[in-house]
Each structure stands twice: as C-alpha cells, then as structure tokens.
Amino acid sequence: MTAPVLEVRDLVKEYGEGEARVHALRGVSLTVERGDYVAVMGASGSGKSTLMNILGCLDVPSSGRYLIDGTDVGALSEGRLAVLRNRKIGFVFQSFNLIPRMSALANVELPMAYGGVGAPERRARALAALEQVGLADRVRHEPNELSGGQQQRVAVARALVTSPALLLADEPTGNLDTASTGDVLDIFDRLSASGRTIVIITHEDDVAARAKRVIRLVDGRIVEDRRRIPAGGPPPRAASGTGEDTAAGTVAGAAADVEAAG
C-alpha cells in the first residue's frame, strides 16, 4: 500500500483572539486510505466544516500536520497549493458554487483550463464527466437554467473531471430535494465502487449510511470512528439490494421535510 491519501495529525484551528477565541478543532488526527468512503458527521458548530476547509486546502490550521498523498501541505507555497487543489482534490459544495453565465461544459472544463490541459482533450474529458453524471443533454445550459440537483451533478462532474486523489463533499445534499439527493448519492456510490476516495460531510444519517466509515465530531474532537466496510470493499448501498433504496429515500425525504419545517 502506498502512502495514505490523507493523513492529519493533531489538527487545531482557533478563530479570534483572547476572550473571543473559539476552538473549532481541538486536535483531530485522521488517516484515510485509498478507495475509502468516509462520512464525517456532526452537529452545527462541531467543527466539521472547518475540518473540511482545511482538508481541501482552502484554509490553514493553527497547528498540526496535514499530508495529502504523502505531501506535507503546511510546507507548500501558495502557488504549489493551487496546483495541489487543482490536481489532487475535487470539491463539491453545499451551494453548488458553479460559476454563473458559464455553460455546464465550460464549468466542468474550468479546472482543466487552470491545470493546463489542451482544449480538445479538455472538451472530451468534460463531456465524459457530464455523461457520467447523466447530464449529457444539458452541456450547453447555464447554471440558472438547471435545477438544483442538476447543478450539483455538474459540480460533481467538475470535481471528478481531473481524476483527483480525493473527492471532498461538504453537505452536498443539503440544498437538494429527495430525488436529487438520491441521484447525487448514487453517483458517489458508483464513484466509490470504481475505487475513488471520498470524504463527505453531512449531518443526515441516511447520507452517512452509504459510507464505508463514519466519523463523528463533537466540539472539535473525534468522538466516534466506526468502520462499516473495509476501505477496499464495495460501498454498502452497492452491496445491498435495491429494496432498501426506496425505504432510505423515504426516510431521507422525511428528514428533509422536517428540516424545511424547522
């Protein structure tokens, strides 16, 4: 086995100064092997988003070590960090974060444009990625012409088009209805089955239920790290039958309703 995709040691993140100091992370250590599908769970304020931003190299920790694919991130310059974000990490955000007024195709091509991939190859790979998320017929549409679920699928295509070592998803289904949630999670299942490493942040149990490993964060500390299926194995949903699918969908829908009502 090569170096783990992701390895963090004693990660601490603090915001503010003096009295107003907030400890978002109080020493998190975590190792994610290649091909794993990890769900990080926690309530609001548990530090899961902070962890996510640090894992995605969008933010820097106050202290602690972070290695991605064996590379120490803390030692990298800003330029190297940009290359790392481009090559090693694919990001899926809760609010989609597509660039407005750019077609789905152009949005998916963007990381490769920054990565210096030639135009013809870029186009082919972007089309393939969109095909993979089932949006081959929507490539010319701009984000405001797409539904939320479709936008998120474009975002997933954009995240995976560079074949990153790590796919990070920050509550990817938080803004989606039940059907779209199912679509997006199915895509994650397929990606996991094909061996991609995924870290997903969520506070919904039925989303976490699809992961091979569930980590629970409370007040900036890992309180639970439960492996359900070996990192090399198939994701639980792909392993089980489709009968459970509808049931889980119903539960997820109910959860979404409660959320909306709250």
Binding site: G56, A82, R87, F93, N97, P111, Y114, T162
Partner: peptide, 16 residues
C-alpha cells in the same frame, strides 16, 4: 469575490 473563491478552490493559481 465568490466567483474568485470558486476559481481558487478548483485550483486557479494566483497568476491566473
């Protein structure tokens, strides 16, 4: 600003 953030998140170098 947000668009710039997205571009940076997907790996746009500072020079771009």
């Amino acid at each position: 600003t947000r668009e710039i953030g997205i571009r940076k998140a997907i790996g746009a170098p500072r020079s771009a």
